[in-house]
Simulated assay, not measured.
Amino acid sequence: MRFLCLYRSSKPEGTPPSQKEMMRMGQLIEESFKSGVLLATEGCLPSIAGARLRMTGGQFSVTDGPFSEAKEVVGGFALIQAESKAAAIGFTKRFMEIAGDGETEIRQIFEPGDAPCGSSGTM
C-alpha cells in the first residue's frame, strides 16, 4: 500500500533545520529509499511563494501566500510504501522524531482493487 504523508511543522514557517537535524534526516531518507519504504519526498518553499485555489458554485478564487495559519501550511511530503496503516504510522513517527513538533496527515493512495471508503474500514 502507498501512503501520502503531509507534514505541518509547529516551528515558525521558514525556520531552517539545524545541521544535526539535516544529518539525521539525510540518514533516514537514504536508509528508507534503499529499503523501498520511501518512494518520494520533498520539502516545500515558504507559503509566500504559493497560492490556494478554491472553487465555490463554479467560481474560482485564488489566494496568494503567505498563509496566516501556520498549522495549515504543508512543510513537505513523503510518498511511502508500507504493508499497513500501522506501518505507515511507525515510519512517520521515526520521521517526526527528527523533524520535531508538528502534525503529519497520513492518507492511503487509492489503487485499483481498493474498496470504496467506508465499505471495509481499510481506507
Rank of each mutant, 00 (worst) to 15 (best):
L38V: 07
K34D: 09
P12C: 10
P116W: 11
E13S: 12
L38K: 08
V62L: 15
I48W: 00
E97T: 03
G102K: 05
A49T: 08
R2E: 09
A40E: 04
K71R: 09
G14V: 10
G90R: 12
I80L: 02
G121I: 11
S18P: 04
V74W: 01
F95T: 05
Q59E: 15
C44S: 04
A49R: 12
F3Y: 15
V73Y: 00
L6H: 02
G118K: 10
P16R: 02
Q59G: 15
G36I: 14
S120M: 05
S32D: 04
S9G: 12
R54N: 11
E69N: 13
A88C: 06
E30V: 07
R24W: 01
G43K: 06
T92N: 03
P112R: 09
Q27M: 14
F110V: 08
D64M: 13
F91V: 04
Y7H: 06
M23V: 00
V37Q: 14
R94H: 08
F91C: 04
T41V: 13
F95H: 04
I89M: 02
E83Y: 15
V74D: 00
A78Y: 15
A70C: 12
I29H: 05
F3P: 05
L39Q: 15
G100T: 04
Q108K: 15
S120E: 03
T104S: 14
F91A: 03
S120L: 07
I80A: 01
M55W: 04
L45E: 09
D101F: 11
D101K: 13
G65S: 10
I109K: 01
I98D: 01
F33G: 02
R54S: 13
C5T: 08
R8Y: 00
R52T: 13
K20L: 08
A82W: 02
G113H: 10
D101T: 08
E83C: 14
P46V: 11
E105S: 07
E42H: 14
S10E: 04
L39V: 13
F33P: 00
A82I: 07
V73F: 03
F110Q: 11
S9L: 07
P112N: 03
M1D: 02
G113M: 12
E105C: 12
G118I: 05
V62W: 06
G76F: 11
S68K: 15
D64L: 15
S84I: 09
T15I: 06
S32I: 15
F3A: 03
